[in-house]
Design a protein around this nucleic acid. Sequence first.
DNA 1: ACTGATTTGGTGTATATACCCGCTTATGAT
DNA 2: ATCATAAGCGGGTATATACACCAAATCAGT
Lengths: 133, 133
Amino acid sequence: MIVLPCHCMNLRNAARKVSALYDAALEPLGITIAQFSLLRRVERLGPVSLTELGRVTDHDRSTIGRNVRLLEKMGLLAQGKGKDQRETMVTLTAEGRRVLAEGAPLWDACQARIEDRLGLERIAAIADILTAL
Amino acid sequence: MIVLPCHCMNLRNAARKVSALYDAALEPLGITIAQFSLLRRVERLGPVSLTELGRVTDHDRSTIGRNVRLLEKMGLLAQGKGKDQRETMVTLTAEGRRVLAEGAPLWDACQARIEDRLGLERIAAIADILTAL
DNA sequence: ACTGATTTGGTGTATATACCCGCTTATGAT
DNA sequence: ATCATAAGCGGGTATATACACCAAATCAGT
């Protein structure tokens, strides 16, 4: 892949390519790395509102709402009203838990492969970018 | 922004955030950093086919075709048939050249700000990722 | 020259993402 | 209790991106 002068495009291209690798690794699950990551978030946070999910992932609420809806249609997440009738509370389904369990070793392998290819130096740099922004 | 264990999501999030900064910087032009970058590619390569653009940018042909179509509607790019009647040749319009000229200092400023915030170390790491993949 | 394989694009479909607007529900100040 | 304000969501619209499939054009081997 050609390296451009533009740091932004280089980042985008790197994210695109790395995403394709993770997506391929998770292919047996029928979900993408973005969806896998969202499932894990819900697993971690327990019943959680869309707004809260958006806050912790730093995504637009509408983005989260749409992504959750897809996972709901797949039977991996469930939505219900909370005490506050405005809030949509999101929870993991049994099937969602199963997919997470099945996916864990796939994700691990891909993650390890990436660490191998990039080296700890660059891996650390990626994390640093987020904190430096 | 929270740092995740998943290197892929960290890269995606970094790309999302950095893109937002570049997009904001180019906002006076009415185009995004992805579009700006594509315009520059066409400027560099001169009349170029969609397939060739896809190859050099490592994007799917259909993605390029759609992105070019948008820039064509904005009057910044023009499409025409080549000697090979299958090929669509893409060229920069006068207006496209104007936008590139107007955008150059905006891009420069944003690029410099990013270099400042991230430091040359991390900037180099980003470029390295692409070559390491 | 003909025919089968390849190349080039376009379209349909899908995910990921953001912004804006409008509706519903909760909260807080009087 | 009332009413203005704020919070939470959904839907519309838009860009960026990929994959699969189809049609047209070209090319290569006979």
